[in-house]
Design a protein around this nucleic acid. Structure first.
Lengths: 175, 175
DNA sequence: CGCTTCTTTCAGAAATTTGTGAAGATACAG
DNA sequence: CTGTATCTTCACAAATTTCTGAAAGAAGCG
């Protein structure tokens, strides 16, 4: 019984059970917020890893999912810029990494979505008529989104500053 | 041919086709952002209505969906505070309304979600250890969310001010 | 150059989600 | 109190999504 003791640590100096508990719990929250299940689990696992980067097989093993599932999940995450892929030079292994800076941006970077909302609203204002009651409502909604878009950009700027001050520059975890 | 002419207006002074086009297009964007289909369509229809409020049967008719579907959709929307329900005093009809103020808040009011994320992260920091690399990453992530939570509140305050100035107070559409 | 190791793609099985019809509640009207 | 209009709930059918196993596709290494 070398590893199952209370709060025990695995071979790598971490308690795999505690890690798993956190991963599943946090992933569940992400799912509730709209992220597909597998991407959520993979992301949480990366977040909870020591180096902030894992290989495909490590992910599959830890989460008990097939290589195909890992592949699908990382493709999704990379597409929405929540992780980035790295190639290890001397190997065919690929490494998936969560990069502090990058994924904060991604979270707020519903920007593309915001844009499309704005486009749809502009079209609506035109086709319903800017002076109709509905048109006026759409105009105001549009103004809100434009406002938010600007504000979020400013907010992220402030965050970078804030973080710099509190945590020092760069990602807090490096290899 | 009283109503189908180009850009023509229906009996109610609006072009139903143009309205429908907007409704479906905007709803599609909302769906892409994660809203379930029916709620998205219902919401878009309300947004594009002249009074900003419709009854269940009006919604069902316009969107060609069953009363059950309307019921489910409005329940969802009310739950996330994107609309409110009103009782017409002299009738068993209920009216669903989009209230400018209210739904802007709702959109940014992922607050509940944010809170749960923060809770999960705090738990993770504790169980993985605040001084481990993973623990440090979680701490920073937590800080980010706390920062965002504060900032969003401030942003909404600024929005109210901004809107006041540009559109005058209150909802732009009243019965 | 072929072997080995890893990753991706593809088709299908399983589970989940979504919308409907029909029956059940609720509340006003006479 | 009975009748009627309106909304909600429930069980099921249909469509969509999700994950897996198996085979094909890259990329170093001998």
């Amino acid at each position: 019984m070398t590893q199952a003791a209370a709060g025990a640590t695995g071979a790598d100096g971490r308690d795999p059970e505690a890690v798993s508990r956190f991963v599943e719990h946090f992933a569940a929250q992400l799912v509730e917020a709209g992220l597909p299940r597998m991407p959520a689990r993979v992301f949480a696992a990366l977040l909870a890893s020591d180096t902030g980067a894992l290989t495909s097989s490590e992910l599959g093993e830890q989460l008990k999912i097939s290589p195909a599932a890992v592949s699908g999940a990382v493709r999704y995450l990379a597409q929405v810029h929540m992780i980035s892929r790295e190639r290890e030079p001397g190997s065919r292994r690929e490494r998936y990494r969560v990069h502090g800076d990058q994924w904060y941006e991604a979270l707020t970077n519903r920007e593309a979505i915001l844009r499309r909302w704005e486009d749809a609203l502009r079209e609506g204002v035109t086709s319903l008529g800017p002076t109709t009651p509905a048109g006026r409502r759409l105009t105001e909604t549009l103004a809100f989104f434009e406002f938010v878009e600007k504000e979020v950009a400013a907010m992220m700027e402030r965050w970078r500053e804030h973080r710099e001050q509190r945590f020092g520059s760069g990602t807090s975890t490096r290899d």
